[in-house]
């Protein structure tokens, strides 16, 4: 990951080191525990769970709960499984991530390389938007989406996520471009490149790492969102998190824990995959975005 591995000057004794390894291992178990519980219980029959075997490996291995969670579990009133909601989430996440990242890149470019009076204040205004408790905008947002004819639609959710995500993407690109040498921009100006040509030919080719950070961050945040999905989604635009919650909280019938666990893993899979594949950028992004405002 991005955190540089370097030698500390500190030396510790043998007993102390053993103790340290023990503690670290203990916490490995702590952090792995829920994942273990979800995985093992998603592939065993329901009776094994209710019979007190939650911590055991499955005696009978079955993918039945996965199939059910995906395609036939009762979500709300329809026995559709989670699959339609999975696609709802995809349809919402892809455009929202793309738009907010592009806007963030352009904003970062302007705020660092085309500075103007009060640009820090403008940035502050945009940035503060990330941190507001979203409860404060729920009511007017619902009304606004209605006025715009976007109530209950995927595009409505895209708009919401773009608006409340653009602060983070702007922050990332601004911090990244701030250390990009301004002399390069000046050289390109003298060479006759215009505003967009400089962005496209000079800045963008060097923006790979931060674009990855921004995309992963936005993808994770938007995929994992529940509040906006629960507040603004219609029947056919509900995202995965809302559907999973409906599945788990359903008050009727037998509680099919194994199906719930399978569903939870399904909901977590995309972000987990992204984290494992591109984890180092993810961490770097978190650090860049939060340690330094």
């Amino acid at each position: 990951m991005s955190i540089a591995t370097q030698d500390t000057a500190i030396r510790t004794g043998r007993v102390m080191r053993t103790l340290i390894y023990l503690v670290l291992l203990l916490f490995v178990l702590f952090y792995m525990l829920p994942l273990y519980v979800m995985v093992v219980n998603s592939v065993k029959p329901l009776e094994e769970i209710t019979g007190g075997g939650m911590m055991n490996l499955p005696q009978v291995f079955t993918l039945e709960p996965w199939a059910k969670a995906w395609s036939s579990a009762q979500i709300g009133v329809e026995p559709t499984g989670l699959s339609p909601y999975f696609w709802n989430s995809i349809k919402m996440v892809v455009p929202a991530v793309a738009i907010s990242t592009v806007l963030g890149a352009l904003n970062g470019y302007v705020l660092t390389k085309w500075r103007f009076k009060y640009d820090t204040i403008v940035f502050g205004l945009i940035l503060f938007a990330c941190f507001i408790p979203f409860q404060i905008v729920l009511i007017p947002m619902a009304k606004m989406l209605g006025l715009m004819g976007l109530a209950g639609t995927t595009w409505g959710l895209v708009l919401v996520h773009v608006v409340y995500g653009v602060g983070f993407t702007t922050l990332y690109f601004r911090n990244y471009y701030a250390v990009f040498p301004t002399e390069l921009i000046r050289a390109a100006q003298i060479d006759g490149a215009g505003f967009f040509q400089i962005f496209w030919r000079i800045l963008l080719p060097s923006s790979g790492p931060i674009a990855v950070v921004s995309i992963i961050w936005q993808f994770t945040n938007i995929w994992n969102d529940f509040l906006f999905g629960a507040s603004f989604a219609g029947a056919d635009s509900q995202p995965m998190t809302v559907a999973l919650n409906n599945l788990v909280q359903a008050s009727h019938g037998v509680k099919e824990y194994n199906v719930h666990f399978a569903g939870a893993i399904l909901a977590a899979l995309p972000t987990l995959l992204v984290y494992i594949v591109a984890g180092r950028y993810f961490v770097r992004g978190l650090m860049a975005g939060s340690v330094k405002g």
Partner: peptide, 19 residues
């Protein structure tokens, strides 16, 4: 240590709820 950060609170909540 870091992977939980990538999960939705709904997933976390579900896992701990039943555990």
């Amino acid at each position: 240590y870091l992977y939980p950060m990538a999960l939705s609170f709904i997933v976390t909540g579900t896992a701990w709820k039943w555990f």
